[in-house]
Amino acid sequence: MAHHTKDKGDLGTAKAHADLVASGFTVLFPATEHAPFDLVAYRHGEFHRVQVKYRSSRAGAISVNFRSVWADRHGTHTKRIYKSEIDYVCIYCPETDECYYIRPDDHQQSVTLRVVPSRNAQRKRVLEAARFRHFGVPDPAVPEANRPSPIVASGVDNEPITHSTSQQPSASSRRTSTFEV
């Protein structure tokens, strides 16, 4: 595997795509590379925006800062991830060949997941990667009140159309729309 950043990102996205399809999701891709998410996972009327990160483990852990870094002829650039623009971050780790799904709103500016137990056997405040293996399973450490609820709109034949969002809309901004063909 080449060490080019774009190749790693493409591999991570391909692994996330395969993992989500194997879990019963339909996977949609944006028509631009400038979207804040890499793919959209759809199942049971819910859409989830997913940003994919390729991270190798170091000292038995994988870490993700909620920002994007890229380089071009003008230098190296950093852009923070706006948590309201994505619902999940999928972290692909090549050493485990697994995808781990986290909700950025459940964490501060970064997250570190342990893929192997620490040498000092510390368990307090340790996030075991295996807890984040399945997409959409909430982190038990996050209170239910802090989790977003989906926005539901009526579609054709009044079927619900749902989009998961990381920001809870106010009662006055929640809308139900009916679309006709």
Rank of each mutant, 00 (worst) to 15 (best):
P104T: 03
S23I: 03
F37E: 08
F132R: 05
F47A: 06
G24P: 07
V115I: 04
C99K: 01
C90L: 04
P104C: 00
Y42A: 09
T112M: 01
I62W: 00
V89T: 05
T112E: 06
V69R: 11
D157V: 02
C90R: 02
A121T: 13
V50D: 00
S110G: 02
V181A: 13
H3Q: 15
S57E: 15
G9S: 01
L28W: 12
W70Y: 11
H107G: 00
I62H: 02
D139S: 09
A16H: 01
N65K: 10
H134P: 02
Y54R: 05
H48K: 04
A14S: 15
C93N: 14
K8H: 10
D106C: 08
D38Q: 02
L113R: 04
R147S: 02
V64Q: 07
V152G: 04
R119W: 09
Y101D: 01
Q122Y: 05
E85L: 12
H34L: 15
Y88F: 12
V52I: 14
G155C: 00
Q167Y: 12
T13M: 07
E98W: 06
G9C: 01
P150S: 14
S170A: 14
P150G: 11
Y82M: 14
L113H: 03
S118Y: 08
Y101E: 04
C90P: 01
T112V: 11
R131F: 03
V115A: 00
V52L: 08
V69K: 14
S172Y: 10
F47H: 06
H34Y: 15
Q167F: 13
Q122K: 09
A2S: 15
Y101Q: 05
A59S: 12
V52A: 06
T26E: 07
F37W: 14
A31D: 13
A129N: 13
S63T: 15
E144H: 13
S57T: 13
A31L: 14
A31I: 09
I86Y: 10
Y42I: 05
T176F: 08
S84W: 14
F29A: 02
G45V: 01
R67F: 09
R55H: 01
A35Q: 00
L39W: 05
T78Q: 05
A41V: 06
P148Y: 06
R80M: 08
S56I: 09
T176Y: 07
